[in-house]
Design a protein around this nucleic acid. Structure first.
Length: 554
RNA sequence: GGCCAGUUGGUGAAGUGGCUUAACACACUGCCCUUUCACGGCAGCAUUCAUGGAUUCGAAUUCCAUACUGGUCACCA
């Protein structure tokens, strides 16, 4: 007489441990009351997706608020998905966004923490042990159905408009005798292990989702696959075992998992594990060309990869601020009232999470970034700029290192005031905005002339200016001189008067200033000209004016 | 198709029966400030909360139906 135990031994001859051993090895964590243990559990497909980053951010934030534990687990049970250096890519992204882990994977080969291994393919013996236990206790069974057979079942169900899946009378291997199963395995037939689901589709299962509230689903009655024919578990099985053994209290994941939660809850119960709390987060969406919403996709949307923002020099903190505004609807208002504080000072609340997926709005992100950078000190901007340039623009990096103090002064233009300028939304666009401050980068071919664009008039104005080069040691004094010059040239120095009677003048002091501005920087839109001239210095300005005059005279 | 969820301006959203003639923020538009730009200030931008019914003195808020959108139904996670 062959028993389930014999079958289990045949399937797992080398497994001698029992679930008890693991229960002992991974005891309940000793943490303060209310502490949350959560995790980020991506599969190593190359890079972290914006939606995953949002999940990771929240999963890291909640333990921080509750003095709990946040860990990183790699879910690499699908060999086909694996990508070279995938683990490192994830770690790099987390480091770039300054999301710190208490436990888990820290490099391709290293881990920290007592509840590991934290890479699923390193946990095979654990899964084997539990799979064996489930066979022994008649909670699971081997299934020999081929892909073809499964397809046929499916076709039949579709044709008859029946519910799709391996359940009830469709689950034919469920009713195989132990003897037959034993014999077929002994013969070397391929098989998967399926859950012997005790569920009844007509009964309901309830659970409380942290963001969605009370959820009611039909019980799961599908004999889902637990272990693939290569002996590796599928997500459902690995999730339940891992998060139980790692003593995770809160599962934060994307909405796409919501409908498989009944399977997971069923597994937790069958294995006599205490079920964790679930929070299913709304997906991050994007509008397609045809106007429909869809999940932001790694393959189609370059802006889905978090590395995109790193490369563009958008400060990690700004990206996180933006994601927090998506994650908690009251965050933005809170931040505006507590402008000197950061994410760490804010208490996250599941109830303030949006249930529906939010559209990813790059404009808004850029705006948040612009505001964020405007609040930084010149040193902080300089540091961020250096870090970015070192990685992505070496020439510029060398330049700003060579002229460190000068660059600091440039970055400080109209910064240390109540309402600082908001010129930069990211580090990668700083160079194109201040290039004219560096002779090494200044080689203009286009001058953006304004109202005054006649060569003769420009030359005339520059001549008069150069003859009377005005001292820039005092701003009011300097500008008054400019006004005098304006009057002498027949332009209006008083803007109000000019606006009332524009026809009485050749132009205004604005036009004169523009000529000067363009002559010095080649741009008609710059920050305060006085500060720029002061920083550039008399010599450099005179050289530039002379050069321009020669060019115009040709 | 089955199951589940969602639906408030161009966008993120506040809102849980009267305080809503629907907050706040982004975007947009106009004006003001101003030597340019940026900043800033002011004003405008949903007579209406997917649609239709019901409950109520009163509904964006409760109930029912319909529509639409999204998710899921793999030896993927």
């Amino acid at each position: 007489m062959i028993t389930n135990k014999d079958l289990a031994n045949l399937m797992y001859p080398n497994i001698t441990k029992s679930p008890c051993d693991y229960e002992k090895k991974y005891p309940e964590r000793k943490l303060p009351e209310g502490a949350v243990v959560s995790r980020f559990a991506p599969s190593p497909t190359g890079f972290v997706h914006m939606g995953s980053l949002l999940t990771a951010l929240v999963a890291a934030k909640v333990p921080k608020d509750t003095r709990g534990i946040f860990f990183l687990r790699i879910e690499d049970t699908d060999g086909k998905r694996k990508v070279e250096n995938g683990i490192q890519g994830i770690i790099d992204d987390l480091v770039n966004f300054d999301i710190q882990i208490d436990e888990g994977v820290v490099s391709e080969s290293e881990e920290k923490g007592k509840y590991g291994p934290y890479v699923q393919t390193r946990r095979k013996e654990i899964y084997d042990t539990y799979a064996k236990y489930m066979i022994e206790n008649d909670l699971a069974y081997p299934c020999f159905c081929t892909e073809k057979e499964l397809e046929n079942i499916r076709d039949r169900q579709e044709k008859n408009k029946e519910r799709i899946g391996y359940y009830g009378s469709f689950a034919k291997c469920r009713y195989l005798s132990i003897d037959e199963a034993y014999r077929r395995i002994k013969n070397g037939e391929k098989y998967v292990i399926r859950l012997k689901s005790p569920g009844n589709f007509n009964k309901k299962i309830e659970f409380n989702d942290l963001v969605r509230g009370k959820m009611v689903f039909p019980e799961n009655d599908i004999d889902v696959i637990l272990v693939k024919s290569d002996g590796i578990p599928v997500y459902h099985f690995a999730h339940v075992i891992d998060d139980h053994l790692m003593r995770t209290t809160h599962i934060l994941r994307g909405e796409e998992w919501l409908s498989s939660t009944p399977v997971h809850l069923q597994l937790f119960e069958m294995l006599k594990f205490k079920a964790p709390r679930y929070a299913h987060l709304g997906l991050v969406m994007k509008i397609d060309e045809d106007g429909t919403r869809r999940k932001l996709s790694k393959r189609k949307d370059p802006e889905a990869a978090v590395s995109y923002y790193h490369e563009r020099g958008i400060p990690a903190e700004a990206v996180k601020l933006y994601l927090m505004t998506l994650a908690n609807s009251n965050f933005e208002e809170w931040l505006n009232q507590n402008i000197d504080k950061g994410i760490d000072d804010f208490t996250f609340n599941f109830k303030k999470m949006s249930m529906s997926g939010s559209l990813f709005d790059v404009e808004k992100l850029l705006n948040i970034s612009r505001n964020y950078i405007s609040r930084l000190s010149k040193e902080e901007v300089y540091r961020g700029l250096c870090a970015w340039a070192l990685e992505f623009d070496n020439y510029f990096y060398n330049l700003i290192v060579k002229y460190k103090n000068y660059t600091l002064d440039i970055l400080n233009i109209e910064r240390e005031q109540k309402k600082p300028r908001k010129d930069y939304a990211n580090y990668s666009e700083i160079k194109e905005q201040i290039f004219y401050m560096y002779d090494e980068l200044y080689n203009p071919s286009d001058y953006e002339w304004g109202n005054i664009s006649e060569k003769q008039e420009i030359i005339h104005i520059l001549d008069v200016y150069m003859d009377n080069y005005f001292d820039v040691s005092d701003k009011d004094n300097w500008f008054n001189k400019i006004k005098e010059l304006t009057d002498d040239l027949g332009y209006a120095s008083n803007m109000k008067e000019y606006k009332i009677n524009p026809h009485e003048y050749k132009g205004s002091v604005a036009d004169i200033s523009t000529v000067l501005r363009v002559a010095i920087t080649s741009k008609c839109m710059t920050p305060d000209l006085y500060v720029i001239m002061k920083l550039l210095g008399k010599e450099r300005i005179q050289t530039r004016l002379k050069l321009l005059k020669e060019k115009l005279s040709l």
